[in-house]
């Protein structure tokens, strides 16, 4: 728990650092994707240049749009993406709002940017945006189910094995030590499911049919330009690292400073660096690699993949953990 003064000082710092790291990771992501396609790729600072340019451009609001919703939704999306950062352990520190929210709250916060995009798409009165918004809703319905199964399986595991607060606080416990061999297999399955949910959650390529620029001209973002588009751009980048940090907090919460026998400022730096490396690995596998390796799914295939394969995998993982906990085998 923290007092109000600390929060007022720390919230803008976390927001600015979060946006900076997010855009930096976006630059790394674009370079790596280019290298995998045998291209040279843009410079590392490209996302910063893009955002600067978008904020300088004219901000067009269509004549038939519902203007207040259209203008408000990019702000809502960015605010929700940044709000997630306050509930997730970052750089080896405890979450800023530790004790005020748990993993269940984080799932709901993750849903808000997508909902904001859906509302903005419907409010912009463009037919392409309407199709995109419908697809975004279907995609959300699809990935929320396996995601919820994974989170609830872990929450149930933690709450039934440790004397922990109501659901569980993120990053406090290493869940791998709580289970036997079968349970570890189940946790690996849940981890894979979370990695597979990640591109859907952040709108990366195999699951980007809501924004498919080659078929529906930008989808939900069709009518957005200038500053509003820039806010959505930042929001998507922040959401990517927030989701990666969430996976890290659930599955690999440990710090490195104790292992290396470091103390003081060295320990803090080592932990922060270790955290960035973990996030980088998750972003690389969950977003960059998948989006280079696979082409875009049709919206019907998105539903099939998530409700069929991913949900089945998550349920199987839950079952393995349950068997392990009840001591049947």
């Amino acid at each position: 728990m923290i007092d109000a003064l600390q929060a007022i000082v720390l919230i803008p710092i976390i927001a600015i650092v979060g946006i900076f790291i997010a855009l930096l990771f976006k630059g790394i992501d674009r370079i790596l994707a280019a290298r995998m396609q045998a291209r040279i790729g843009p410079p590392l600072s490209q996302p910063f240049i893009d955002v600067k340019k978008l904020f300088m451009k004219e901000n067009i609001v269509p004549k038939n749009a519902v203007k207040w919703i259209f203008g408000m939704m990019p702000v809502v999306a960015l605010t929700a993406s940044i709000a997630v950062l306050f509930y997730i352990p970052l750089f080896g520190f405890k979450p800023l709002l530790d004790g005020y929210g748990d993993a269940i709250l984080v799932i709901y916060l993750f849903a808000i940017p997508s909902l904001a995009m859906v509302l903005g798409g419907f409010a912009s009165s463009s037919r392409y945006a309407t199709i995109g918004a419908q697809r975004e809703m279907v995609t959300m319905l699809s990935y929320e189910f396996p995601l919820a199964i994974s989170i609830i399986a872990i929450a149930w595991l933690v709450s039934s094995t440790t004397a922990c607060s109501p659901a569980f606080s993120l990053g406090a416990i290493s869940i791998w030590a709580l289970v036997g061999p079968l349970g570890i297999l189940g946790l690996i399955l849940l981890f894979l499911v979370m990695l597979f949910v990640m591109p859907g959650e952040v709108g990366a390529i195999p699951f980007d049919s809501p924004e498919a620029e080659t078929e529906i001209g930008g989808g939900v973002l069709t009518e957005y330009s200038g500053r509003n588009l820039g806010l959505f751009y930042i929001s998507a980048s922040v959401k990517t690292i927030a989701f990666a940090a969430f996976i890290v907090a659930l599955f690999f919460p440990g710090n490195i400073s104790n292992t290396l026998f470091l103390t003081g400022i060295g320990a803090i730096l080592a932990d922060a660096l270790f955290f960035l490396v973990k996030i980088f690995i998750i972003v690389f596998i969950g977003s960059t690699f998948i989006r280079v390796a696979i082409a875009r799914f049709r919206i019907t295939q998105v539903v099939k993949v998530y409700w069929g394969y991913a949900s089945f995998m998550a349920l199987f993982g839950l079952l393995l953990i349950a068997i392990d906990l009840m001591g049947v085998v």
């Binding site: 674009r30 280019a34 790729g41 843009p42 392409y128 620029e213």
Partner: peptide, 21 residues
């Protein structure tokens, strides 16, 4: 394409005139 790769210069093909420069 990889041979010419105009993304080096930060160029990107977008799907709608609203995003375009």
């Amino acid at each position: 394409t990889p041979r010419y790769d105009i993304e080096r210069f930060g160029m990107k093909l977008v799907g709608t005139p609203r995003h375009a420069d």
